[in-house]
Amino acid sequence: MKVASEVSGNNVIEVKDLVKRFGDFIADDKLTFTVGKGQIFGLLGANGAGKTTAIRMLCGLLKPTSGYIKVAGYDGFTQSDKIKENIGYMSQKFSLYEDLTVWENIRFFGGIYGLWGKQLRERSEELLQNLGMDQHRDTPIADLPLGWKQRLAFSVAQIHKPAVIFLDEPTGGVDPIARKHFWELISKAAYSGTTVVVTTHYMDEAEYCNQIVIMVDGKIVANNTPLELKKEYQAKTMNDVFLRLAQSASRTE
């Protein structure tokens, strides 16, 4: 398998010598990596490693101190609004409106992402069909099982067809069957060309990624496929790899 960074000209995220400083504190120290189109990219690190700061820069929410950053073709220093229009975000504690129906939630989020009229109607129908939730369009969110809510939240975060979707501990806490379904959905989104960025504390989620970056004390200490990392550190699981690298950390939150 090829690591995304070897693929040139097809990168959706490009970061070079990216630095973020808060006063004397260097949260992110010269980060360099690229993520190709359609990759499932995992960004891992213990608390205090600089992960959240990196994600905030990638989402266009935080201006870097120095370096180079491009997301979906837009510059992180000067075009952060454009970046925000071209990404989607979903966390484990996703936010659908519990007392609105499935259909109302889809319309609401579509509207926020700038869709309207015919385009919004078509996209909403397409989304319902893909989820197999057509029969439940008038069901309030509160009445849906957790696994369904999660799949809906994921689809809604992509209603505007973003180039990159950010997922924060996406499958934590759901039962294993719902979890497998959800990873299938993520993987299908990646096949269809959406780049997926996953941040998680749970290393079994990292096993589903095809590129992993591990951060320790604000620096990148590993960038490879899970398979290669496991080989390199002679480890059985990503958890073993992570513990080997992250236990040397001196910084905590």
């Binding site: 690190g45 213990a46 608390n47 934590g172 806490g173 504390h201 749970y202 290393m203 958890n239 992570f242 513990l243 992250a246 236990q247 950390a249």
Partner: peptide, 8 residues
């Protein structure tokens, strides 16, 4: 829950 792998 919600604790990083090292602290876990």
């Amino acid at each position: 829950t919600g604790v990083d792998a090292v602290s876990r």
